[in-house]
Amino acid sequence: MPKTPRRHQDDLASLFSLAFSTLNQELHQRLNELGFGDIRPMHGFLFQGLIPDGATAKTLVDLLGISKQAVSQMLDYLEERGYVIRRPHPSDGRGKLVVLTERGWALLKAKESIYSKIENRWGGIIGPDRLNMMRSDLKQIIQSVGEGELKQKLRPVW
């Protein structure tokens, strides 16, 4: 007799996805309340590539795994809204370096504060020890799969 399939809410992939969606929705709701309502989830992945000293568009293409045109459109969008600026590359006369502006850094500071509050609340639900164990367990799994290293690329897969 075939095994009865688990409900999708019970498998790890669905639980990780639902937890991420919950976290992401709350993050963006709070960012909106703080005046950052023009930021979308995809932008967060791009911002990670700009920390701490900026990046070239090619570096962002490689990081995100999307086309040069898509990165260029995102950068145009973020530059128009004051989050990033393109500057001459210090070692490549033809290249540009994309860096965060004061508004971009303020966004990242707000994001970190929001994540901290969410994690503290989650720790209140399951206990801080269990939350730290979960973080440690996830790192261990990722390191095991990644042959001892946490992957440097944090990219969207949707």
Rank of each mutant, 00 (worst) to 15 (best):
T56M: 06
P2C: 06
I114H: 09
N120W: 04
R121K: 12
S136G: 15
V157F: 03
R130Y: 07
M42I: 11
E147C: 04
K109W: 11
R103K: 15
G93K: 14
P5I: 07
I142D: 09
F36P: 11
D129N: 14
S14C: 13
N132Y: 13
G35M: 04
R30P: 01
L18V: 09
E149Y: 06
R40P: 00
P88C: 01
L12Y: 06
I126P: 01
I125K: 08
S14E: 11
D38T: 14
H28Y: 15
Q69E: 05
H28F: 15
D53N: 08
L12D: 04
R121D: 13
R135D: 14
E112N: 13
G104K: 01
Y115T: 05
D137M: 14
D137H: 13
Y115I: 07
K3M: 10
D11A: 12
K109S: 15
S116T: 08
G123R: 00
Q143R: 15
I118V: 13
I114M: 12
T59E: 13
G124V: 03
G127F: 01
G49Q: 05
L23I: 13
Y77P: 00
K139E: 12
P156K: 12
H89P: 08
L154T: 10
M42N: 04
Q143S: 10
P88A: 05
L15K: 12
L150H: 02
A55M: 08
P52D: 11
L78E: 00
K111R: 15
P90A: 12
